[in-house]
Amino acid sequence: MPQLDPTSFSPQLFWLAIAFILLYLLMSRLVLPRVGKVLGQREERIQGNLEKAVKLKAEAEEVLAAYQKSIADARAEAHSALNQAAAEIAAATAAREADFARKLAEQTAVAESRIKVSKTQALADIRTVAGDLAAAMTSKLTGVTVNGSDAGGAVEAVLKERA
């Protein structure tokens, strides 16, 4: 077995020591700091990005909250404006209705009084006309000239009788 040949021991040990110490120095001085630096940078960058993302998220949430608040405000405002407008319209309608009713009542009253006046006048006229008519009819039929006031008195009496 060549592994058990003692003459091969000392050169292998010597070169192993050289190789391993060389490797250790290369790794610890040159290679591993570089790899560690790259990994550290990545870690830092990822951490930074994470923090940035968290900050951006908070900002976005803030903006969202402000937006929602403004929407709620606008909605409340619109609601109150709507209510106010509705109340105004209702009030105006009511006022106009009352006005209209009042005017209507006034006009009705005027018309009624006018009707009343014309009715009394018509009634009064009827007596005169009836008296005249009766006098005219009597004179035509009988040839007797009847005094206007007598005819009027007769018509009055008939009307009273009929009434």
Binding site: S8, S10, W15, A19
Partner: peptide
């Protein structure tokens, strides 16, 4: 003996 050999070469 510290002669260079194939073992040392591969190390």
């Amino acid at each position: 003996d510290i002669s260079f050999n194939n073992s040392a070469l591969w190390m």
